[in-house]
Amino acid sequence: MERIPILRMGNFLLVTIQVDMHDKLALTLQDDLTSKIADVGAKGVLIDISSLEIVDSFIGRTLANIASMARVLDAQTVVVGMQPAVAITLVELGMSLPGIRTALNVESGMQYLHETVTSDRDSEEYDGDSD
């Protein structure tokens, strides 16, 4: 069965969506990612959508779901590389994806993950119960 590959880099999982996803493939990705986060104890997930030519409400919802599920599993999600035309269309469609962190490209996305995950660690060490 067709699958979108998930790469592991230390604490982080990397996904690059390069195909025109049909709905089942998006749902498979959601399943695969959540089980992988739990399996490897990932702290961050980076999803690169720079090659996606459209994001419709279903893909948008899947991305939002992945971010929420990852949060429950104690991992941060960042979606990177959304194209201007895609962003304009999503806004027009009525989806502003408020729960999703975004970054311009893989590099700044990784930087964001490093910063948040490290600062989480620090706060755990110093003042135990803060969030």
């Binding site: 962003a87 999503l90 502003s96």
Partner: peptide, 12 residues
């Protein structure tokens, strides 16, 4: 507002 939201979706 839409421009600002779209920019945020792109990570800016």
């Amino acid at each position: 507002l839409k421009t600002i939201t779209a920019a945020r979706l792109m990570g800016a």
